[in-house]
Design a binder for these strands. Structure first.
Lengths: 143, 143
DNA sequence: TACGCTTGTATAGCAAGCTATGCAATATTA
DNA sequence: TAATATTGCATAGCTTGCTATACAAGCGTA
């Protein structure tokens, strides 16, 4: 009848996620971006001029979450939207120069947070840890 | 100059945490509770009649987050607050009978979610995974 | 072509997290 | 004891996430 949170994967995962987010937040705040925008920027740095739907397929959040985050990014001058000539419902999403310029610094932040966070594990443990997470996520997605 | 989210611990941790929360949410919704209340209930099931400060020391969220969640729990009839005779600033937090009755079902939910989520790992991998998380969290807390 | 289904996006409304700040009650100290 | 500092909690205001719903534009089909 006991339940120890220190042994509960769910509890630990939640706690760890908040610690990661806090660290990343700290590092990217000076760049003028926030954590929820990060995955979107990662995709747009690879390729912009895409529809919201295209973006959605590459990002693991719900459509409504993406739409809201995009609104804030537009407000903050990180993206611009143009008409999609092929479909009047959709728009094309473009990075601004400002957002483009942040890329390398942002990459560095993410790398540093990961490195710092995983420094308590040795090289092979780190690989295993990431591998475990990928497997767990994979298993949870096809339910 | 590349940054792959599939290899980024931070990205995976965040994604995994949302999947866990979604699963737990699903399971406990019929009980009339929500995920943010879970850690608080876990502590109160062990011992209630405590101050907010006592609770805070056992729960890994900020004070403001706890205060807000407690308000919603009071609204939802899960807790009651009484005056603390020893200190007029503080209050004592008590579970209602309704909340007390949910305990075993809630434990089951949490156990089931953990079991399901980790089923892709074998016994020893599960132990390692949890151990890794504890170490990472430990390392991130004393920064 | 007109009707209805599907698709792309937006909006409403909520929970849960954060930082920053306010404020009254207690404690400390000059 | 009066002034000041600390403590316990609440509130404001924001982001990020969710579900549910709305709605216009496009598509398919009778």
């Amino acid at each position: 009848m006991k339940f120890k949170k220190e042994n509960s994967a769910g509890y630990l995962v939640n706690h760890m996620a908040r610690l990661f987010a806090k660290e990343l937040q700290h590092c990217i705040a000076p760049l003028g971006i926030v954590v929820g925008q990060f995955p979107i920027l990662l995709e747009l740095w690879l390729k912009d001029g895409v529809s919201q739907k295209d973006l959605l397929s590459k990002i693991d959040v719900e459509q409504a979450t993406l739409a809201n985050t995009l609104s804030r990014m537009e407000r903050d001058g990180l993206i611009m939207r143009t008409k999609n000539p092929a479909d009047a419902r959709a728009q094309l999403i473009w990075l601004t120069d400002k957002a483009r310029a942040l890329r390398d610094d942002a990459y560095d932040c993410a790398q540093n947070v990961n490195t710092q966070a995983l420094r308590v594990l040795d090289e092979s443990e780190q690989v295993q840890f990431v591998e475990y997470m990928r497997r767990v996520i994979g298993g949870m997605q096809d339910c």
